[in-house]
Write a protein that binds this DNA or RNA. Sequence first.
DNA 1: GTCTATAACGTGATAGAC
DNA 2: GTCTATCACGTTATAGAC
Lengths: 197, 197
Amino acid sequence: MLAQSRRPRGQTRERILLLAADWLQQRGYHGFSFAQIANALDIQSGAVHYHFPAKQDLVAAIFKRYRETAVAWCDEHSSKHGDAGACVRAFLEWQASFLDAEQVCPLGVAGVEYASLPSKACAEAESLRDEMIAWLTTTLSAGRDDGAVDFAGSAADQAALIVSATSGALQLARLNGSDDFRSVIRAVLAGLQTRGT
Amino acid sequence: MLAQSRRPRGQTRERILLLAADWLQQRGYHGFSFAQIANALDIQSGAVHYHFPAKQDLVAAIFKRYRETAVAWCDEHSSKHGDAGACVRAFLEWQASFLDAEQVCPLGVAGVEYASLPSKACAEAESLRDEMIAWLTTTLSAGRDDGAVDFAGSAADQAALIVSATSGALQLARLNGSDDFRSVIRAVLAGLQTRGT
DNA sequence: GTCTATAACGTGATAGAC
DNA sequence: GTCTATCACGTTATAGAC
């Protein structure tokens, strides 16, 4: 019963999801097609539609998985279990990992193409935004309380700044190279005045 | 020789440019078509192609005009003629004006759709980035020298932060309303410690 | 010089074979 | 259950009328 075909069955869905996520964060929602996915994976475009009936289902699944990944990441980086400053720095490094893949944050994709995005995708993106802002706000607030970090203004405002700045910086890096991203990270860290516990 | 037709001749190009710029900043590059523009302006899609041979010409023209507008704005808000803190605050208000139109910064569009954008548009977007970063860097640097503003890190880093944060904040605002944008503005201003001269 | 009519192609999506 | 062959439509772009 092993290896009934050259491409192992049951992995097509996963392969589609991974490739589409990559392209979504490189080209935007309207920047890739089912036919292109099928061509790259050496299948027919109808096979993609079997796993994801409509394009909005595919993209909603991408946002959903990214959100699940983000939630798991946040749980592993709770300031209850470690230094809040280290948590924030880890967040910045996590965002930096998109640089090598030449990707932007999914939140940016949703924000830019909002008016031409199917509602399913918008809803998932909004949930993702809530998770990231909530984690950052909690982390920053706890960090300021115990002296691990300091910053001007409210924790919620600072959280919105960090999410906006990192997302925007990944986009700026597409235009002018990763130096712009590193500039933004330096400025964010300078504004945070983190110090290890 | 007046009013030879219902739609005055010579204004079609301008009407196309204005509508397309609006849609570009709401839906992204691939989120609108020549046919939709033609339909909205009650002309044929071929008429759009007369004024802009290919879609990349239309979008490059949008970026070019936006850059010209930005350069003119920067010239009018030179820190040589006024307070640097006021200039930065004016910049933030300028970005805020996109909120009401439910638009994002053109830089964000280019960053997100970079890999699916025609090269002409990318080149214009890169020039736009250069102009904005240069003006902000100069303004912030001069402002710190004369004590109008203060901030942690280099002027260039702070400039990249402000461009990224405002662009990202406009996108976040699409997902969760203008409160997120205002949060980011407060955080930016808190980090700048501006004071009027 | 300006726009209308039309074409070639790529898109998202479906029906039915295996 | 999984995928191949096919469709109707919207897309960018062109040729030629006025």
